[in-house]
Simulated assay, not measured.
Amino acid sequence: MELRQLQYFVKVARKQHVTQAAEELHVVQSAVSRQIRLLEEELGVTLFVQKGRNVQLTSVGRLFLTRVEGVLTELDKAVDEIHEFLDPDAGEIRIGFPHSIVLTLLPSVIAAFRKDYPSAKFILKQGTYNSLLRDVAKGEIDLAFVSPFPETNEHVTGEYLMTDELYAIVPPGHKLAHCKEIRLAELKDETFVMFTESYSLRTIVMDACLKAGFTPQIEFEADETDAIRGLVAAGMGVSLLPELALIDSNTLQPVKMKVVEPEVSRTIGLIRRRGEKLPLIAEVFVRFLMTYFKDRTIKREL
């Protein structure tokens, strides 16, 4: 059994198409078909069945795929560890993040880290709360910023980084736009611009409104903080957004106000796969982040 056969097998299983797999592998289709056939002959089983123009894994093929993917993942880790040994500061960090963090926090953190470790490479992946938890648990990314920080989870562990306060935002010219702070109940008769249901910020805002004694009337839903800010600024409703998402980036801006009753905030943490050893450069990055956010918290308190 050759490594090449296993790599071809996994590629065909993922694409469910021999020709497309061959194109991505940069080899001819006949070479892929031949290696798959040799692998089946050696194992004494059928791994794929034809389904129209596609191929589909058999039940034993699905079982074999799970094991092979684990083997190839471990092999990749072994190669990475050798590279780390040769140059510990030039590794690769695969990190996920929600959209509301990418605007200011993530670029600042990476820029600060690269001053000390200019050879470190980052692979960035944006996602929702649940998709980031899933990607870390499956080992598709090493680390992820998430909000809220999960206190307990059987698949991931991590560190709390900071608390980010949520502010009420209203259109310029709104009757409350002159206020420095408000009670959330003052927005009970307003229409809201809200994140879609896949975002954890929606749950935080909904819970805060219920705590204030009302269920928000949702007029618009969006997937990005920029879209919510823009809709509010254009007079389409009101909303609540984290402080990190309210850094000015264009001329059309809503008015933000502190919410004093109830206080509304979210926790931000960094998660990694439970029981998994991180690449050396990723461990260095975690230690850097803990110091970075500790200093940031002290400065904000002062």
Rank of each mutant, 00 (worst) to 15 (best):
L278I: 08
S265R: 07
S239L: 06
I268F: 03
V232Y: 04
V232G: 03
G275P: 01
V255E: 10
L246D: 03
S249I: 11
G237M: 04
L280M: 11
I247W: 10
M257P: 05
T251N: 12
G269S: 07
Q253R: 14
A233F: 01
A245C: 08
V259Y: 03
L280A: 13
V255M: 12
L244I: 11
M236K: 15
K256H: 13
I247R: 14
G235I: 09
L280C: 06
S239K: 07
T251Q: 11
E276F: 05
N250P: 01
I281M: 11
E261N: 15
M236A: 15
P242T: 09
P254C: 15
E276M: 11
I268R: 02
V260S: 15
L244M: 13
P242Q: 09
R273Y: 03
D248N: 09
M257K: 04
V255D: 06
S265Y: 14
N250E: 12
G237A: 13
L231K: 05
K256D: 04
M257G: 08
R273D: 03
R274I: 05
G237F: 00
P242F: 05
A234Y: 13
L252N: 13
I271P: 00
E263G: 03
R266N: 06
T267I: 07
R273A: 06
L244A: 10
R274M: 09
R273E: 11
I268G: 07
M236E: 11
V238D: 08
L246E: 03
I271H: 02
Q253N: 13
L240C: 13
K277A: 14
I268D: 03
S249L: 07
Q253Y: 02
K277H: 12
G235N: 12
I268Q: 02
L270A: 11
P262V: 14
L240E: 00
G235D: 10
V238I: 14
I268H: 03
R272D: 00
Q253C: 05
V259S: 04
A245K: 03
R274Q: 12
K258F: 02
T251D: 15
M257W: 02
Q253T: 09
M257S: 07
L252Y: 08
E263F: 10
L280P: 00
T267V: 07
V255Q: 10
G275M: 09
S265K: 11
L280H: 14
E263T: 11
V260G: 04
G235H: 13
I271K: 01
